[in-house]
Design a protein around this nucleic acid. Structure first.
Lengths: 388, 388
DNA sequence: CTTAGTTTGTCTATTGGCTAAACTAAGTTT
DNA sequence: AAACTTAGTTTAGCCAATAGACAAACTAAG
């Protein structure tokens, strides 16, 4: 029986979390507002707010408008009571942010990555992260954690099991960073943190079930189901890039055949462009051509859009999500993809599932993953607060 | 702020639920055992157990072995303190059970269904359910609810939005049954209740994430993720039968192309058998042929097994579940399907995701759905207990 | 057949969080 | 200025869980 038993301390933690949550959501509001909002007694709210003020998470910011009686004392969350580091480890770059507890970016930094062996990457990563930590202002909680997104499979213990594009196998990144910095470190797949980033700060704000499709050289996905990131039994789910859409299609390096990413990724686009002799082997060159009105290039994007739609129709049928968000590099091709993509999805998905669904593109662009990584660390901090 | 705030009543409800849960799990055990198991104080356990005894959910069943001191008084859950009705509404049959609160079957009954209009079905269903209710013995809580599985899409309010095989559209079944019997009624898709049945009573016992694939004339699926039935945003997810496995395959009645169920369902088997001039157009005849060693028939099953494997590989890559359970009529063809199915799945799914996965067949056979329907009603009863 | 030691389950006093109601503080309205 | 409103605090009481004392019922050793 692992279930934690209920006692008074639990109640207090729960109610404190509820009060903190209302301050986070409701921005400037008074103790009376919180009481009305939550149903908690005014006295209870007063007491819990005092605790939060003492801990530094909440502060009073003067009085508000009277509505016929004593003026309310307005409260707000102290975003600068702590900081978090978010890192997006790419195949040839590292991007990092230092954010406050509301996700406000204090420092942002990018570095090149030309070597990819675990040791070399760690040699770059360590001072990179340290420099972000060093820039954090004095605060009540200090730097509360480090979140990292990596292009590969990550197990529950934060070890990178397999990252083909980095050439990594079984790299215990979380352990290493944990030892180096002595603060909580969370490692997750790039698509998973991207999903978290878009849901918290981007186009998926407030959405309960959302599938984030990271379309870069491959296709990765992050599944947010019932407001939570879904991970499979072993911690790695959502390899929708390797969902086969042509059972008898060409073999994929994963062992399967006709995988979605063979048809709908940046890689697929570049291969097709090369076959047709268009562009210079880069997404940028193709985007420029499409921009200039080149019909052949636009047809190419159109085809990718259709293939995206085929996979999205599957996703919609399987998950019946509120939204599908397309992110990563290919989101820049939105103008040339969107119509074919939406059209194909609508033609193929089940009618009932399409009701009210939203097909969106990432708002944060190439920052979905860093921001999500930071948010991961912030969320873990709040979770720790709630349970202690 | 909809979150229920914490107060003492909540604590008591939580702890009562914990105590009840340990009695449910641990079968005959004493108050002292519960205290040791849960960490709750002996006095607390005593008090909560007394409440449960008073309510009729728990009873003392004499003393146990002493381990050198006073003999413990053993407790057990009173399964017969209430009853539930489970109904599996098929296209041409209705199956119903009356179970106690532990899912023990007290009465089981099946009826033919030759008419399928909502009114006609309701005319049959009403006395059918009434007769089950009438057989329930006197008990503390009486018949606590009715669960129904139907072959179609069901919305959150228990209305059948679309059931092509019954020819139903927008039939408010839950409302109708609720009014007729005045006890809680829960309607869900056949595959969803089947998943619940197999997880609770069948081959998926205790498994946290499991995909139930109901392979009948079509393919339906029930997704159990993190121990909970997953429903999409609008309440209907898991149409994995309409996951396209051949983007350029033949059109499906759903509007998409190359849907899984066109390749791997009983229907697909029968179509192929007819093309090859084998059997008499029924699954039974083909099973008999395969049994007798007919090579052509076995090859047919083998092909279906491969197609099942293609879809299962997709499922495994997407959900990384602990188990996939094949249910409904086609589970009877297990001997002729299993090898090709496992082999194809292993060849196509990502290696990491295959670790420890189990490909199972339904243990309850054609009773997965009824049992799951009953369990749905039982679970709802316990949920009500916990929140009041 | 005592007597000591164990184990089960209940009783009792205490703790701590929440609440209603009274109260203080600080405004607005007429 | 008097009457009313609203915000936030203080007070007394409630209730569930707990530690520890205790009674009941048993085993085992001398």
């Amino acid at each position: 029986m692992k279930t934690p038993t209920g006692d008074q301390a639990l109640i207090k933690r729960m109610n404190t979390a509820i009060v903190l949550e209302s301050v986070l959501q409701g921005a400037p509001l008074s103790r009376a507002d919180i009481s009305a909002l939550t149903g908690l007694n005014k006295a209870t709210v007063s007491s819990l707010v005092q605790d939060l003020i003492d801990s530094g998470l909440v502060r009073e910011i003067g009085t508000g408008q009277s509505s016929g009686g004593r003026k309310p004392v307005l409260l707000e969350f102290v975003a600068e009571s702590g900081y978090a580091v978010g890192v997006d480890l790419g195949v040839n770059y590292v991007r990092g942010v230092l954010t406050d507890l509301r996700g406000g970016v204090a420092v942002e930094r990018t570095a090149q990555l030309d070597k990819t062996s675990p040791d070399e990457v760690f040699g770059i990563l360590r001072p990179f992260i340290q420099s972000l930590i060093d820039e954090a202002p004095e605060s009540a909680f200090g730097v509360v954690g480090i979140g990292v997104g990596v292009p590969g499979l990550v197990d529950r213990g934060g070890a990178v099991l397999y990252a083909p594009n980095l050439g990594w196998r079984d790299v215990p990144l979380q352990d290493a960073l944990n030892r180096a910095f002595g603060i909580p470190v969370l490692i997750d797949n790039e698509a998973n943190v991207g999903a978290i980033g878009e849901r918290k700060f981007g186009s998926g704000r407030g959405i309960g079930s959302m599938i984030y499709v990271s379309v870069g050289m491959g296709i990765g996905t992050g599944l947010i189901l019932q407001k939570e990131l879904y991970k499979g039994a072993a911690g790695f789910s959502g390899e929708l890039g390797h969902l086969s859409i042509e059972a008898s299609g060409p073999p994929c390096r994963c062992g399967n055949r006709g995988c979605w990413e063979l048809y709908a990724s940046e890689q697929a686009l570049l291969v097709r462009a090369a076959e047709a002799g268009i562009g210079e082997g880069t997404l940028d060159s193709l985007l420029a051509l499409a921009e200039r009105g080149d019909e052949q290039t636009r047809a190419l994007f159109n085809g990718i859009g259709e293939s995206l739609g085929v996979g999205i129709a599957n996703i919609v049928n399987v998950f019946n999500p509120e939204a599908v968000v397309i992110g990563n590099t290919m989101s820049r091709a939105r103008p040339w993809l969107e119509e074919a993509m939406s059209h194909t999805t609508e033609a193929r998905a089940l009618n009932f599932h399409l009701r009210g669904i939203r097909l969106l593109f990432a708002e944060l662009g190439d920052r979905s993953a860093v921001m999500g990584a930071a948010e991961t660390a912030i969320a873990a901090f709040f979770k720790r607060l709630r349970s202690a």
